[in-house]
Nucleic acid binder design. Structure first.
Lengths: 357, 357
DNA sequence: TTGTAGGCGTTATCAC
DNA sequence: GTGATAACGCCTACAA
């Protein structure tokens, strides 16, 4: 007599205790599991009666579909991957919020990686993300390593480059041209008649966007027939760097001192403003000041800080929307990469009033 | 005559073009696919020779293991899920950075959700995360909905409650007791002889941690036989709220005015300091000030702002470490929930010097 | 150290 | 509108 209840060809179940599957739901409802699948993915294909029964059962036993199994079966993870450059900065936090807010409703989960301004870490992050079979990818730079670029080309999914705004890329762009941001700030001073306008970069060289803004500034100066004056901060703390910059202002002879300074971020500018009184520098009379970033504190400083505010949240949002649009439109991909400009807003306040002596 | 080349029992492959699998690698190496699996998961079980061959092939064809398939097969997604309360705030951005930095090496991917201080959204996020079969869960509050609590209990994975630090919870704690933070700030002023110490809450009531700090402050006041004076800001912008608070300072008779104000975040405190001069208030002579958060700008304000700085990055890091420790130790779970205190640091500066009149 | 068999939970495909 | 079946890519269990 054969062993009962245990055909030798049958392995033990590897199922975790307490895990419910689509089949449990199907059995309870007296339908097949594919019907339960349809209930979630295309409910209009399930009859009203069955739908109601399923709703009740799912609610009662607390069934949650496995994203993992679904992703495997469909060949597409329910995942949008994003590589940030500095995950703890306000800039990227706002981008992330814009993206999550927008993706929330779609059921897509955002996966984040932090590349710390390194192209090689970005490549690593992309490679890791490939294993998730992402539905789309959002990047925050456009100068990838060749290996990264090769992976991107092979992925064949929507790819968005957010934050910058570059010509001639094969991927969708959402952001603004950083060089032009620098140009705009330079012009703000040039139009007021300033001739000596300085641009201050942060201590760390890693933020290449700051460098791009400096280049735009330099072009504007050159176009006006003036010599660019780009300096790099000599303190890693932004507030301290700004303070030192303003402290050094009176070092040279009066007619060579800058009439205006553009700080590449608002924190340096704030440091300058807060320290000015201690150095006997009156702002903006002795030197006009502008920042970049649209920091919340800018309006409260004395004098209030002029700043160029990028639409950080909006860029995250638009990047996510671009992804959703492309996913909805597939499999007819858009012929050319889209370009969504999210312009900066120049918030003009007292600090940037040029006083020509 | 039957159709050729197409046995009726054989379905078409659903494989995406260009997708390589563990079997492709195995075939190229002349080994079985399980050996390739071992190469990734326990390389020490694969002979040096085979390992070398596999390394070369994997590198050459750019094979990346599927996290999705692996997660399904092993019953555990390679995922740690975290629910934040305000994903765009500096606090949570630092937490996230601490977590990702720590998880990076382990190959675990962090999944984030934003609960916006809502218990119900937290519940939704947890439910969504269940579908990812997470290896662990990190939460940032301890007062979950009953449904959420039920899910947590059933999950049977490491669960960490980070940012706060509470007694008697079934889950691991990493953070600090917010009430005590309020107490510490209150004592800082009480020890200087102040009798009238005010505590200012932000306009939005959603941040229950701020309320906990206020409670700790109130207890310290009561213990000293003094009346607590908790006010809620009347402007949603923190800087503006701080400015208004300081502007209102001189409204009442001198001997009822607060001698010190604790702002529940540094932005309100900064707003107060920046606006003080405009109101004819001299700080700290007319009123001592302290904040909470350890904002970067605090040290640059005039007067420099005293603030209680929580170890935000460290808390994220320790939360992740707790998760990794528990995962490594399984299947022998720790008998009781661990408690990791990450203390705040009181940064005493000029703003909090009490001047008794 | 290496291999065989089959299952993980869902979905694509085809059939009714 | 509903169902049977196999396939997604990998890993656990067991065997050699």
């Amino acid at each position: 007599m054969k062993t009962m209840n245990q055909p030798s060809s049958r392995r033990a179940s590897r199922r975790k205790a307490g895990t419910r599957t689509i089949r449990d739901v199907a059995a309870l409802a007296g339908v097949s599991s594919i019907t339960v699948s349809r209930y979630f993915n295309s409910p209009e294909k399930v009859s009203e009666a069955v739908r109601e029964r399923l709703r009740e059962i799912i609610e009662r036993i607390g069934y949650v579909p496995s994203q993992v199994a679904g992703g495997l079966a469909s060949g597409r993870g329910r995942v949008v991957c994003a590589v940030m450059q500095n995950i703890a900065s306000a800039t990227f936090a706002d981008l992330v919020k814009g993206m999550t807010d927008e993706l929330q409703a779609s059921g897509l989960q955002l996966l984040l990686a932090n590349a710390r301004y390194s192209r090689s870490l970005e490549e690593d992050a992309i490679r890791a993300f490939v294993g998730w079979h992402p539905s789309a990818l959002i990047l925050t730079r456009d100068d990838h390593t060749p290996a990264a670029e090769a992976m991107l080309g092979a992925l064949n999914i929507p790819i968005v480059e957010a934050w910058g705004f570059v010509d001639g890329r094969p991927f969708h762009q959402v952001g603004f041209p950083h060089a032009e941001a620098g140009t705009e700030l330079a012009r703000h001073f040039l139009e007021q008649g300033a001739k000596r306008v300085r641009f201050v970069l942060p201590f760390a060289e890693e933020d290449f966007r700051a460098t791009q803004r400096a280049e735009g500034y330099a072009r504007a100066m050159a176009a006006a027939g003036l010599a660019p004056d780009v300096r790099r901060a000599d303190a890693s703390d932004d507030y301290e760097a700004g303070a030192r910059e303003i402290a050094a202002l009176k070092a040279g002879p009066r007619d060579t001192r800058p009439q205006a300074i553009i700080f590449t971020n608002d924190y340096m500018a704030a440091g300058a403003i807060l320290h000015a009184a201690d150095c006997g520098v009156r702002l903006p009379a002795d030197c006009a000041i502008a920042g970049f970033g649209g920091a919340g504190i800018a309006a409260s400083l004395k004098p209030a800080l002029t700043t160029l505010r990028p639409g950080r949240y909006e860029i995250g949002q638009q990047a996510a929307r671009t992804v959703l649009r492309l996913l909805a439109a597939s499999p007819e991909p858009e012929p050319v990469a889209s370009r969504t400009l999210v312009p900066c807003e120049l918030l003009v306040r007292e600090s940037s009033k040029v006083v020509l002596s």
